[in-house]
Design a protein around this nucleic acid. Sequence first.
DNA 1: CATTTGAGTGAACGCCGTTAACTATCGCAA
DNA 2: TTGCGATAGTTAACGGCGTTCACTCAAATG
Lengths: 242, 242
Amino acid sequence: MDAPSRRERLRSATVAEIKDGARRLLVTGGTDAISLRAIARDMGMTAPAIYRYFPSLEALVAALAGDLYDELRLLLEAARDDAGDEPAQQLLTMSRAFRAWSVAHPAEFGLILGAPVPGRNAFVEGCVTPDHPGARFGAVFIQPILELWHRSPFRTPPAELLRQRLDERRLEPLRLSHGEVPVEVAYAFLSGWTRLYGLVAMEVFHQFDWAVTEAEALFELEMEMFTAQLLADPPTDDSPQT
Amino acid sequence: MDAPSRRERLRSATVAEIKDGARRLLVTGGTDAISLRAIARDMGMTAPAIYRYFPSLEALVAALAGDLYDELRLLLEAARDDAGDEPAQQLLTMSRAFRAWSVAHPAEFGLILGAPVPGRNAFVEGCVTPDHPGARFGAVFIQPILELWHRSPFRTPPAELLRQRLDERRLEPLRLSHGEVPVEVAYAFLSGWTRLYGLVAMEVFHQFDWAVTEAEALFELEMEMFTAQLLADPPTDDSPQT
DNA sequence: CATTTGAGTGAACGCCGTTAACTATCGCAA
DNA sequence: TTGCGATAGTTAACGGCGTTCACTCAAATG
């Protein structure tokens, strides 16, 4: 509403500086290298001053996590908007952008998409609302899948099986976030997002260094497979997958 | 060789007690609740005494991670041995056992299969040897896939594509651990393990609480899909997947 | 029995988050 | 313009942490 007063401008600049410092520490030393004293030291301040801006270290980390969620989401939206009108092409471009960001920012990935460290707990525990960061994030993927489904239904497990396994009650949170969505689209999202997450998380966490070099090759291969599946013939009554 | 002396018995008992305490703290308070002082307090000791058994907190956490890897691997091997002779049934049983353990032990899962916290770094950074814990772990899954492949080749992407994307150089670490393996088997393992990991990690890390309740239903559905794919008709020259 | 080894202690150093009491400055209203 | 309240910062302190060092004491060894 009102133009921000001088005080408010200074305040938000300080908040940004604190979060920048926190992120720098996150990147250089991992999640638990983030310390109020180190941030304050870098700013030429003392640690208790930060309590004027954040009620605790945990709250600061939660705010940082929220920013990172937004950063990643905006990046994916930009990738989608640059990818033309084909939903399948959009999904491919978004997936590549997701992997590229994650590989380039492993510490940030770990904070928002890894194990719930104390500090992301406060972030996750907020009750499941439509604007939960995870929901806003997922929406970026759901929309192109929905569009693709409307243009040309892709191959999925039989609808009866889906409706049995993913019944209304179990998909209620998703419905709360995104309204009614065909169960086939919900399944394609959950399955695809899980595969994408697994691929990227294993690479970022160095979880299959023992098996494969250049995880990007495996990533591209899996992308090809999943895209081919999405673009395959629409289902028929005797569709081959049980 | 020699029977363990009295000293050695006491020593290894103390080591075990320390690791037990560390695990208890891990379970109740997360990775960074593990503290030498708390462990020593629980044992009626003082913190510096632990340095007689571990050179640092990080080394203690690494040792604990190694134990957890073994525990999980032994669990999976037991599940496999209880699952009869059908490799596909073995894989299904092992996957369920993996999920069950992970859901029941989220903190342990996060330590060994999550983001490389300082303390798992020392664990991961050991050069990639055949007895790397991850390799020993992966082997448990590779063996049934290999057996299944020998009994009845399953459907995979065309071999030319696989050999192009997963060429010899890129699969060298896996070859070092497990000898020569058909590229189709390597792909099936990498793809399947990635999907399994993604499903379980997302559930354990509460990464899709916003979308779905009872993640087990989604897990079972995906297991059904993947198993169906493995048991589908063997590939033909005009196999439908690109 | 003497001695060496190993386990454990206590004090200390420098980190950390957090709280409390206090001070100085800035912006606004009388 | 003056005064006052809100705001941003300080210092000091508490308890907890990993780690090191000097030390003690019991146990195994010869």
